[in-house]
Design a protein around this nucleic acid. Structure first.
Lengths: 191, 191
DNA sequence: GAAACTTGAATGACCGTTTAAAAAACTGTT
DNA sequence: AACAGTTTTTTAAACGGTCATTCAAGTTTC
């Protein structure tokens, strides 16, 4: 029990440090030593816990995906109508704890590096497919069949595009405004 | 004259090689030697022409931005109505010579690395502002003022999102279909 | 013959990972 | 509480390797 606890605490700390360090320096450039310094540890101990740099990156990605998945489940629980559930999918992506510059930034980094890492690209495919099926399920209840796919593309690509833009932002983001804008886009696409 | 000619030819060759090599290996990982091999030259000669790796990357980005700008100007020339010009902006982004996996891929790479390179981030800001003003100009003629900004966000983020997704694609893209889909999205947003 | 171009080899720096040994945390016993 | 033994955790240092850039010495072009 206590054995497991310490390992989990260290994992969490190291992953948080990874998010900050990758945001500051970029995925391809950040070094183990920089991440270690951010966490107040040594590079060797990261390898002790995660085996390798790639293992650490995969774990970090997994951590972020989990966060996103949980945010979406929460929103889904209280939504009652298809449109509300559509809002919920958007709101999850722009939730307070997720829609921050460092996290959009690191998401961007993972995205750019996914094509070169089978582990990362697998995680991305899974996530994308999940979001896609959520969209489709709700859109089918709101639109004639021949418009569903176009609307899904418009909304899903919009979400990606907003993150992409947010990663370039110099100053803090406004999740509230992002959610409001997303709702307006939904209303524009589905009057 | 001839002095300038040789330099231009080499520049072009090296930039094309850079696009291929960065696509294959990723911005952060690709080496000068790999790019040189792709071009049938030596790493030293790249430095002779571009000064440094960063100089080469900036030149490559500049090359791609020029291509995009020219594609957009061409489309604008023949479009007659605001809606046609809106289509033209989209079509430029999904033009046959631009909407290919290697180019979406490298665009993605530059995007991800822009926050860490003042030179790249400057180029990105300029490009984004240009696209934005094109969108606004046409949308103002098609929509009531209070919907213009929402529609612009929806369309511009859509474009970014499509590229982002295209960069992950395993097999060749279909620019025709991408343009058709973009038109459908425009029609969805502006009935 | 001069200027432009090319490159192999050298340079200097950096990084991920491993290793060995120490420190810390935990265990059961007295 | 104290202690000796065991396991877990930490890190400094060493290792092996890679890479961008420079430079000097060639080759080509004008």
């Amino acid at each position: 029990m206590s054995r497991k606890r310490i390992r989990d605490i260290r994992n969490e700390e190291l992953i948080e440090a990874t998010i900050v360090a990758v945001h500051k320096r970029g995925y391809g450039v950040v070094t183990m030593a920089e991440i270690a310094r951010e966490a107040g540890a040594s590079a060797a101990s990261i390898n002790y816990y995660f085996g390798s740099k790639e293992g650490l990156m995969e774990a970090t990605m997994l951590h972020l995906l989990g966060k996103l998945r949980r945010a979406m489940s929460e929103g889904y629980a209280t939504a009652r109508t298809p449109r509300e559930r559509l809002y919920a999918v958007m709101d999850a992506n722009f939730a307070d704890g997720l829609f921050t510059v460092p996290q959009c930034s690191i998401w961007m980094q993972f995205w750019a590096n996914a094509p070169y890492s089978p582990r990362l690209s697998r995680l991305h495919r899974i996530n994308r497919a999940r979001v896609r099926s959520h969209f489709l399920a709700e859109l089918r209840a709101l639109l004639p069949a021949d418009r569903v796919e176009t609307a899904r593309q418009a909304l899903q690509c919009y979400m990606d595009g907003v993150w992409l833009q947010a990663a370039q932002s110099e100053d803090a983001l406004d999740p509230d405004e992002a959610r409001a804008a997303a709702h307006r886009v939904v209303d524009l696409v589905i009057p």
